[in-house]
Simulated scan of single mutants.
Amino acid sequence: MKQIDTIIFDLGGVLIDWNPEYLYLKVFNGNREKMQWFFDNICTSDWNENQDAGYPLAQATEDRVLLFPEYENEIRMFYGRWVEMLAGEITGTVTILKKLVESRNYKVVALTNWSAETFPIALERFDFLQWFEGIVVSGEEKTRKPFDAIFNLTLNRFNIKAENSIFIDDNLRNIEAAKKLGINGLLFESPDKLYKQLLTFNIYL
């Protein structure tokens, strides 16, 4: 059994309940089909991830409005009403984080795809973000998961050995990228399942 000494948490979808549906279900009056079409064609996840890698929100908005002028209002809402996409903390995972930090047995850091412009809102809202030894924010580093550069940066910055670390993320693409670098990956599905997954590494909370 590998000796785990570091836990690396993703934030959105693992510790923080962030979902653009919380805003756009209101915008599209509950019409899920219209909302999904908008996400698939206008404000896509690829487009949003470009901002997670440091592209300015204002410029990204204007670029999109230029391409889809008939959806100007809806496009401007994406970052204009971004705070409405934040529902709160995922309590069960925050409890796991707290126990890991309080045990003092592990180095606990975060690695998140997040715009540098909106991350201060999360820092202000969620006290548990202060518990980490450090947080790597993609928008500040001008790169993002699943690229090797941001994983290597995290390992180097916090003096982490890949094989002695566990990375927790709700995106399988990111888990697979981490595993290719020798980092142990856990796909997050629920706090209860995460408890059980950690047990397989002899981490008892």
Rank of each mutant, 00 (worst) to 15 (best):
K26Q: 14
G185W: 01
K161Q: 14
N31F: 03
F132L: 03
N29P: 09
E62R: 11
Q59Y: 13
E117K: 02
A162L: 05
D169Q: 01
Q197V: 13
E117T: 01
W18C: 07
L57Q: 04
L57C: 06
L86I: 15
N202Q: 13
F126A: 02
V27G: 07
N174H: 15
T6N: 08
L129M: 00
I166R: 00
L205Y: 01
E70D: 13
N152C: 12
T44L: 02
S138M: 08
G185P: 00
V108G: 01
S190D: 09
S190W: 05
T91W: 08
I121V: 14
N50Q: 13
A87P: 10
R104Q: 15
I135W: 02
N73M: 11
T93E: 00
P69R: 06
I7W: 07
S103Y: 04
L198T: 04
I183S: 05
Y204K: 15
W18K: 06
V14I: 02
N159I: 08
K180E: 14
G12N: 04
V83I: 12
G80Y: 02
L97C: 05
A149M: 12
L181M: 05
A177T: 00
T61E: 15
K145P: 05
E74A: 06
L57M: 08
K98M: 09
Q130H: 13
P56V: 00
L129C: 02
R125P: 15
E163S: 10
Y22E: 04
I8H: 01
G12K: 01
Y55D: 09
A60M: 08
R32Q: 12
V14T: 00
E89T: 09
Y204M: 15
E189T: 11
L100S: 00
P56K: 01
F167I: 04
K161C: 15
M85K: 05
D52R: 03
L186H: 01
N171D: 12
T6C: 09
Y71T: 02
K142C: 08
W47P: 08
T93F: 03
I16R: 01
F201H: 07
K34S: 09
W18Y: 12
T61D: 11
L15G: 05
L194S: 04
I121F: 11
D17K: 07
P56N: 02
N19L: 03
L123K: 15
T143N: 09
Q51N: 12
K142Q: 13
A122L: 13
I203Y: 03
V83L: 12
S138Y: 07
W37S: 14
S165A: 15
D17P: 07
P191V: 07
I175T: 00
F201V: 10
I16K: 01
W114A: 09
G80A: 09
F201R: 04
Q51C: 10
G185F: 01
G13A: 05
T61F: 03
D63S: 00
E49F: 10
F9W: 07
P56C: 02
L66T: 14
D40C: 02
Y195D: 11
I160W: 14
L187E: 06
T95Q: 14
F39A: 09
F167E: 04
Y71W: 12
L86R: 06
N202T: 15
F151T: 06
R64D: 11
G12M: 05
E133I: 11
A122R: 07
K193W: 13
Y195Q: 13
V27D: 04
I8S: 01
F68Q: 02
V27E: 10
E62G: 06
R32M: 10
N113C: 11
L66F: 14
L194C: 08
P56H: 03
F126Y: 06
